[in-house]
Write a protein that binds this DNA or RNA. Sequence first.
DNA 1: TTATATAGTTTGAATATCAAACATTATTAA
DNA 2: TTAATAATGTTTGATATTCAAACTATATAA
Lengths: 139, 139
Amino acid sequence: MKIIEELTHELLSFFNGFSSWENSIVRSSDLTVSEAHALEVLGEHEKMNMKGLAQKLGVTTGTTTVTVDRLERKNFARRESTKEDRRVNLIALTDIGNKAFNEHHGYHLHLTEQMASVLNDDEIRQFLNMLKKINAEVF
Amino acid sequence: MKIIEELTHELLSFFNGFSSWENSIVRSSDLTVSEAHALEVLGEHEKMNMKGLAQKLGVTTGTTTVTVDRLERKNFARRESTKEDRRVNLIALTDIGNKAFNEHHGYHLHLTEQMASVLNDDEIRQFLNMLKKINAEVF
DNA sequence: TTATATAGTTTGAATATCAAACATTATTAA
DNA sequence: TTAATAATGTTTGATATTCAAACTATATAA
């Protein structure tokens, strides 16, 4: 049971570290934290409805409505309605939004490289596999 | 370079998953997200000054002032002044605060157990070691 | 066709956060 | 020692974040 305690401690440090890193990245950009999170999700999904976005971000749809409002005001994203289900809004990034996504995503890639640089090649592969398993089976 | 992309993707899912999990835990308790984060740090540190807390959380001291104000109002924490440096406030959890910490920490332990349950014993040890290295050398 | 469910928005309120200005106390330099 | 500088923490003013609950519009089931 001791190793679970230790692992919990390192996981919390890991999340705090990541969160601190992201705060400082965002502070020196023209994005807010929630905008950056939304961009990260939208940038990997082409088109997405509000509910899907909310679920990925772990917030309510009321919250994503506000976030997407702001992204639209900045011309980073736009809502598209569909014929199949007229209640649904599909969100897509604009060219400007994609540019912002790529820029922010670049920072993430760089952080990942820093993490990878303290691991050997085997460890990197193992780390990836463990994360995949945890993401698929726990979250 | 492809594996870095993939790892970045899984890391983001991991963080979103964790964040969603924590939001739902917090929503069903009498804590707010920032209170829970502060509790998690304070619960492992006995006594801590505002600056240290702010650094661990990755926010400004202005923000922690507000958070600790609220923890004090709820009787979860108290400020203690020191003779050595009279500018400093040491924050300590009260008995009630420790109880709240233990309860919240229990959820974290349970989540860690869930993660560990999809890994074998070797992987668990490796996961712990990798996180240690990353926390020590990257964050 | 009516009842129920779903997607998304709005509303109202509480939290969360920052940068910058401030007060107090320590430390360094003259 | 005294004056200048640095550090800790709080306050202020503004904006961002978030939720639950009420609401609108549309879709699906009975």
